[in-house]
Design a protein around this nucleic acid. Structure first.
Lengths: 178, 178
DNA sequence: ATTTGCATGTAATCTGTTACATGATTCA
DNA sequence: TGAATCATGTAACAGATTACATGCAAAT
């Protein structure tokens, strides 16, 4: 499906970046729905360059350190636009180890189950606090055709997801304790 | 992390099964949070047998068709119990191509965005109807120490997740249309 | 008889993570 | 001057999907 390809093209469609900067984007902006390590990004960038979807210029940082500033090409832009316009069937399985554990948890003592759920709840609560803090940077709803708008929608989605997950965890705790 | 290993051990801890039956379980009961194709299950079963965590007897279906009925061993049971009792850090990234598309969707016409969101909403609504139908098989809340209890909790979680996802999609549609 | 489902496997490929490897720049 | 960060790459491995491959059993 080459999703990483389109994630990179989408980011380079916003502005030219180095591989390192792309990595930082995956760690921040896209973190809630996609990720990639530098060991995956650099080879993919090379491949995209071979395919003519991106190109780069070498810049010098300081005295000698070379960095490659990548830009999307017209072909790349066309390819990306085609992808983003596509409709898709929702993927069947968002794999989730914790839910798997809950599924099997009847073999455990109730105390331990509740402890695990509480632990999970704590972690997701702090995650939610972090997301809500990120939301502060928007004042009001961004303009519909700005990149900030997409940013806003997915952040809202992430917050709603965390909220809902916490709600589920609380219900599980309740049902385990009666 | 060997999650498939523990998913299989957990299922075999409930009852002895063939690889084919395990495959069916992954397609039904576990479908909301884990999946595996037969091409992954059969080699894993072989490996688990080599590791002494499961064993099997060959049964004959009809005249000649051999099937392997797998059972969990004591070692396997101990290993599984240790795993299910473990606490874990929530995984950072539940990758989601649709959210990635939404993130970049500002490059599209508003009409197309709304169309995509509506399409997604339709699919998730029917998915939710399907899940709610599954829930009917429970009358009331299952006993806390039965496998049905875990089953019930994750099904509830799946329904809540779908409900929440639909809510998010509706908000996205609203914000795109003003 | 033919189709659908039961039943088991391997091979090739793709995607992603961890570990290995190196070196420059900036800030305290 | 030492630590954190910038910057780029490769190699080995793990996990998972698609395709290849075969054959029996049951139901229509």
């Amino acid at each position: 499906m080459r999703t990483l390809k389109y994630a990179i093209l989408g980011l380079l469609n916003q502005r030219s970046m180095t591989g390192y900067e792309l990595m930082l984007e995956f760690e921040s902006a896209l973190n809630e729905f996609w990720s990639a390590k530098h060991s995956q990004i650099y080879p993919e960038l090379k491949r995209l360059a071979d395919e003519g979807l991106v190109d780069y210029v070498i810049e010098i940082s300081g005295k000698v350190l070379e960095k490659k500033l990548y830009s999307i090409t017209d072909t790349g832009k066309a390819d990306f636009l085609e992808w983003v316009a596509m409709s898709e069937e929702p993927k069947a399985t968002p794999k989730d180890v914790f839910r798997l554990r809950v599924f099997f948890s009847a073999v455990l003592d109730v105390d331990l189950r509740v402890q695990q759920l509480e632990d999970q709840l704590y972690q997701h609560k702090s995650r939610m606090a972090h997301l809500k803090n990120n939301q502060k940077k928007f004042d009001g709803i961004p303009e519909k055709n700005s990149q900030d708008f997409g940013d806003y929608l997915v952040l809202m989605g992430a917050i709603m997801r965390e909220e809902n997950h916490c709600k589920w965890l609380k219900k599980c705790i309740d049902l385990n304790m009666n």
